[in-house]
């Protein structure tokens, strides 16, 4: 993950407008991360707002010598998403219709249809995993974070993240087998 320049964080001490730079640096990634969980624009916007307002309110608690700022921010986003899952109980209703888009292949429509079906079934398998596993996949493939960064966000060791990733792939395989895909 590309971290923001520490000078910008330091500048916040004197200049509150520096938060604008912090926001610009992270907003797209945080929004995308949250959208991977909510799969709807309205909730993604609400939760993104909530994350940045919390970050601003709690800015005084961030320690430059501690975790990188991005990990700190992702941790706020992670907790926000966990609370959202808990409060709304929507995990099971993340819909299959919310399948991420794909670039269409105009020259080979049959292949696109087949790929689309495979993608749909994989998406069903992902949605059926527990929140920790979905979270790991979102942070790894949606955000491109390292295992160390994911560990800091999810409050686990790097070894625990590797083991969780292994279990997640096994879980996906099992779901795909149930659907006759493997």
């Amino acid at each position: 993950m590309r971290e923001i320049d520490l000078h910008v964080i330091e500048r916040m001490k004197e200049d509150p407008l520096a938060f604008g730079e912090i926001y610009e640096h992270y907003v797209d990634r945080i929004y995308n991360y949250i959208y991977q969980h909510t799969r709807n624009i309205h909730d993604a916007e609400d939760l993104t707002s909530s994350v940045f307002f919390r970050a601003l309110t709690n800015f005084g608690r961030y320690r430059v010598q501690g975790a990188p700022f991005g990990s700190w921010l992702y941790r706020i986003a992670h907790n926000t998403v966990v609370n959202w899952h808990r409060d709304t109980g929507r995990r099971k209703t993340v819909s299959v219709e919310s399948l991420p888009p794909i670039e269409s292949n105009g020259d080979r429509p049959d292949e696109t249809a087949e790929q689309e079906e495979a993608r749909r079934l994989l998406w069903v398998a992902i949605v059926r995993q527990n929140p920790d596993r979905q979270e790991l996949l979102a942070l790894k493939f949606g955000q491109g974070l390292s295992n160390a960064e994911i560990g800091k966000t999810m409050n686990r060791t790097e070894g625990a993240i590797k083991a969780l990733y292994h279990r997640t792939l096994l879980g996906l395989r099992k779901e795909l087998e149930k659907m006759g895909m493997e």
Binding site: D28, A44, E45, T48, P100, R119, L122, L137, F141
Partner: peptide, 17 residues
């Protein structure tokens, strides 16, 4: 193989309005 497919599926970036 599942990891490759999952990566392709989840790496689609959605930007805010």
């Amino acid at each position: 193989e599942i990891a490759e497919r999952t990566s392709r599926l989840m790496s689609v970036q959605v930007k805010p309005d």
